[in-house]
Amino acid sequence: MKNNVELNAFLTDLLPFASVEQGKQYPEIVVPLEKWHETAQKLYENQQVPFDYMIDFTAVDYLTKFMVVYHLESTQTHDLVVVKTYLEDRQKPLIETVSDVWATAEFNEREVFDLFGIRFHNHPDLRRLFLEDDYGFPLRKDFKDEINVIELSN
């Protein structure tokens, strides 16, 4: 795609249920949680700008909800989009896996599961990646480590 306006128009067409807007750097797509897997497949499989390279995937804890962020790039046109989903249920956060779409998601999802406790439906091998099984979820903002106390000042 030549410019962001064109890309945004294309994305709006592709994903009618999502809100597409131009962010500070890249187009940002916010999709409803239920539509996430469908969105992923559409982004990956479309002919014009196939977003086949998942650069980055992570989550942010907003204390009331989780935000899950995907940075996707098309290796053909080198367009980059940011896809976001919000998980309102903080007790049992659950989202569908996209490891069947992008292979690297399998391990990124394990990392997010490890650090945030977000679970991924249909994930083939959802184990913790770095930490022990009984460790908490350290990147949650309300995480308290009683043994090695790290006081965050902000």
């Binding site: 990646l129 770095f130 350290p138 990147l139 790290i150 965050l152 000042s153």
Partner: peptide
Amino acid sequence: GYIHRGIEKMCEA
């Protein structure tokens, strides 16, 4: 995870 130091968590402080 043998040298996971939680750099991302540390960055928040």
